[in-house]
Design a protein around this nucleic acid. Structure first.
Length: 274
DNA sequence: CATTTCACCTGGTGGC
DNA sequence: TGCCACCAGGTGAAAT
């Protein structure tokens, strides 16, 4: 479900509703997979802490914990995987199947992590011991043109595979890789290192435009993505190629092709993309 | 090292 | 209605 625009939408929604609130009680499911940090250690770290702010880094949601913004002591880092949801609810709201974490807040609200496939991850970081969370790759919304081009220099892998590599760029997933390549007019199987400087700049600009447009629409709800309050996004209505295999291209009416690149379903227009 | 493949999970869909 | 194959927003380990 969640790539940069979806994670940004969730992080903003959670921040609006819980910043300044204090965690008074913590509950975790017994499935070990979602816990990058053991449930016991997260429990000790989270209970009693105040959530100062919530924001996005790449595809991660970072909850800053401390007494105020100038004294952050710890972080709770949430990765939604494919099907994760981070929801702000009332305590009475029915607990959804596959709920793995419930943080009861002083205000009476609850912060819940729900994840059917359990590909998501929850991590607790003590800043003194572990340091602050940092993504490996660059932020696509702010990277400079020169640095963006340098990411792909000399690489033989497909440009689509390179876009998905989180240690190069952080936050781009299958939807926005396909959509940005369409808007830039570049075929997904092209070797990353063979793109011209002009093509790379078209790609960077397309990526920024697509990601920002999607954030404005609350992200893409292809099947089950919802924001922090359970509301779906609308950017799926703007998709030009993603999951449109066989359907006519909106620009030239040529049927959109679906192929496999880096093991992922990949969609492109054979006429508009060179 | 760079690149590719596969396993990790549940659930929805479409064919028979 | 049931069974089965296939597909899905991600990522890290193992293989090549």
């Amino acid at each position: 479900m969640p790539e940069l625009p979806e994670v940004e939408t969730v992080a903003r929604g959670v921040d609006e509703r819980v910043h300044g609130d204090r965690i008074v009680e913590v509950w975790f499911s017994s499935y070990p997979q979602p816990f990058k940090t053991s449930a016991a250690r997260q429990h000790r770290g989270l209970a009693g802490r105040k959530i100062v702010a919530v924001h996005r880094t790449g595809k991660h949601i970072v909850c800053e914990l401390g007494e105020n913004k100038k004294s952050i002591e710890a972080q709770w880092v949430v990765h939604l995987g494919m099907t994760g949801r981070l929801l702000v609810t009332t305590p009475e709201a029915p607990v959804a199947k596959h709920t793995h974490a419930r943080l009861e807040l002083k205000s009476g609200k609850e912060l819940r992590f729900v994840d059917p496939r359990r590909f998501g991850r929850l991590e607790f970081r003590d800043l003194k011991k572990n340091g602050a969370f940092a993504a490996a790759g660059a932020e696509p919304l702010t990277i400079e043109p020169e640095a963006f081009a340098a990411l792909f220099r000399g690489r033989t892998l497909a440009i689509k595979a390179a876009l998905l590599n989180q240690s190069l760029l952080t936050g781009v997933g299958n939807i926005y890789a396909d959509e940005s390549l369409f808007h830039a007019g570049i075929r997904p199987r092209r070797a990353a290192g063979r793109l011209t400087r002009a093509e790379l700049e078209r790609l960077r600009v397309a990526l920024v435009q697509v990601l920002e447009a999607s954030i404005r629409k609350g992200g893409s709800s292809v099947s089950d993505y919802v924001d922090a309050t359970g509301v779906r996004g609308f950017y799926q209505l703007e998709h030009r190629v993603y999951q449109r295999g066989g359907e006519p291209c909106h620009s030239c009416a040529t049927p959109i092709e679906r192929i496999l690149v880096a093991g992922r379903g990949t969609h492109f227009c054979p006429k508009c993309q060179k």
